[in-house]
């Protein structure tokens, strides 16, 4: 935006933000105004500005997670106007304020899932994802016991597909966006990644059965193949992986797992 004299002026925004002091207290929405928001700011930098403002006014700053701020660590994640990571297919940290208009009201909420309890404000606990991985999201190979890397050839197509599915950053947007609160896309990505490689075959049946059991145990919902997850995924993991997960599960059941 340019003022008549050509200098840039910032946007003025109204923010509706979920505030919750801790995991056990109830929360509610609060309204804040921020001014002088530059369109070059990232969404999180805009929240930094709000927090400086709150700090100066003696109010508790809004807690939110972020770390790498370059779209790869998966730490950030906000529900912005009802969309996980906001209106652009990327992570919250890579969303920039040029995607918003002057005078807009933006509603910001944490990921909502009972398996991701809110710890404070916009910060949630995604430990459930780690516990799902613990149930088989790996290939068992002790350090030093690996064979020579070139002893197994992997067709390029398989390696590429495995890579595509391994790009999942574990941010939880799939769960946040899913009307059922399911983590099937997250699970499917890992199962497809490891199942696509020769190294992952030995534990393939056990992996899918145990991971799905843990997923259900954590209280995630079941998949009804709606597809909100894949459109919210910043890494564009396709719905294929959920079908692959189901297929692997069926195969495992056939094998009597």
């Amino acid at each position: 935006m340019s003022a008549p004299d050509g200098t840039k002026t910032g946007m003025k925004l109204t923010l509706n933000i979920w505030r919750q002091p801790d995991a056990t207290s109830p929360g509610k929405m609060h309204t804040y105004q921020v001014e002088d928001v530059s369109e070059d700011m990232s969404f999180l930098e805009m929240l930094d500005v709000l927090n400086e403002q709150l700090n100066a006014a003696g109010e508790d700053p809004v807690a939110f997670d972020s770390d790498c701020r370059e779209g790869i660590c998966g730490m950030c994640g906000l529900m912005i106007n009802g969309q996980a990571h906001g209106p652009v297919t990327t992570t919250t940290c890579q969303l920039h304020m040029r995607s918003f208009k002057d005078g807009e009201t933006i509603t910001i909420e944490p990921w909502r899932a009972d398996a991701f309890p809110v710890l404070k404000d916009l910060v949630v606990d995604r430990g459930a994802f780690d516990r799902i991985i613990q149930q088989g999201g790996y290939i068992s190979v002790n350090t030093g016991s690996a064979p020579e890397a070139h002893s197994v050839q992997v067709p390029k197509e398989d390696a590429d597909r495995a890579f595509d599915m391994a790009t999942c950053i574990g941010c939880g947007a799939c769960v946040a966006a899913c009307p059922n609160g399911s983590a099937s896309l997250f699970m499917g990505a890992k199962i497809t990644h490891l199942g696509q490689l020769p190294q992952g075959q030995a534990e393939r049946d056990k992996r899918v059965v145990n991971m799905v059991a843990q997923h259900d145990h954590e209280g995630f919902g079941g998949c009804t193949n709606i597809g909100e997850c894949t459109s919210a995924c910043p890494k564009e993991i396709p719905l294929d992986v959920i079908s692959q997960l189901n297929k692997d599960l069926r195969t495992a059941m056939k094998h009597g797992r």
Partner: peptide
Amino acid sequence: RANRARTQKYVV
């Protein structure tokens, strides 16, 4: 399960 997976609904 879906209802239990998200007892606190989104505002938007």
